[in-house]
């Protein structure tokens, strides 16, 4: 899917960001072009989830310096809902339960917000039901989940399927999927991964944040990045993920030691 003429979707330069006055990201650089699938791996606390929240515009995270450009436009000043409408999608590691808010209504309102941005007509209840039923097939989800409150009482796997369902409805330009594979059994992982593969378009791109190589057996990334201490310290292809699976993250410490020695 990658070609030299591909448009850059996301360009992050020297991004520093903090939460609760503690700097977590110490200069992240990342370029994602259309059609590309990137995987970001790293230990707990390396800054992966923070990066995803900062891109999505979570108000608790403060950008200290650097830039995040979406299709050439700086989005740091945009509110989270504005980022979502232009096509930035964050698949949550822990999807939030919202009691009393119907999943179907939530999905419809969200879909219409995105459609409005795309200058498509808003869908009424009946039209939306047709669309959602069709998209449910992508994640093999029971329509009964539409009648329930958003994520309330869903199992871990059902929550993640609901995230991918949202991705299917919103048709984002870039999807950042934060540990979408965590808490999934083998079957659920396969269903979720197949959904992500089906939704991949030559004009869209995906960032997978994951701990494990097993997701990458299902979805082949074009690039694998390793994050440590709030930076991307190494970039490679799928082989890097395989290597990581074999030898663990110890090499990061070895690299750091070597660097220190050299200095």
């Amino acid at each position: 899917m990658i070609s030299s003429t591909s448009e850059t979707i996301l360009s992050i330069e020297d991004l520093h960001a903090s939460v609760e006055d503690q700097e977590i990201l110490h200069g992240v650089n990342l370029v994602v072009k259309e059609g590309e699938i990137h995987a970001i791996m790293g230990r707990n606390g390396s800054g992966k989830s923070t990066l995803s929240k900062v891109i999505a515009g979570h108000p608790s995270y403060k950008v200290l310096s650097g830039s995040i450009q979406f299709k050439g436009k700086d989005i740091i000043q945009l509110a989270p809902e504005e980022r979502a409408r232009i096509g930035v999608f964050l698949g949550f590691q822990y999807p939030v339960e919202i009691p009393g808010v119907s999943n179907l209504e939530f999905l419809r309102v969200a879909t219409n917000s995105r459609r409005k941005e795309l200058l498509k007509s808003e869908l009424d209840t009946f039209e939306f039901e047709d669309l959602v039923k069709e998209r449910l097939k992508i994640v093999e989800m029971d329509p009964a989940f539409l009648e329930r409150s958003v994520n309330e009482g869903f199992s871990g796997g059902e929550k993640k399927r609901n995230e991918i369902l949202q991705m299917a409805l919103l048709e984002p330009v870039i999807s950042i999927l934060d540990e979408t594979d965590s808490g999934l059994d083998i079957d659920a992982l396969r269903i979720v991964a197949s959904g992500i593969n089906r939704l991949s378009q030559p004009s869209s791109s995906t960032i997978l944040i994951t701990h494990y190589q097993r997701l990458l057996n299902e979805i082949t990334p074009d690039f694998v990045h390793i994050m440590a201490d709030g930076k991307i310290i190494k970039t490679g292809n799928k082989e890097l993920a395989i290597e990581l699976e074999k030898s663990g993250y110890d090499f990061i410490d070895d690299n750091a030691k070597e660097k220190e020695m050299a200095e």
Partner: peptide, 8 residues
């Protein structure tokens, strides 16, 4: 934030 992040 969850709702906002969906464009609402």
């Amino acid at each position: 934030f969850y709702l906002l992040s969906r464009g609402i």
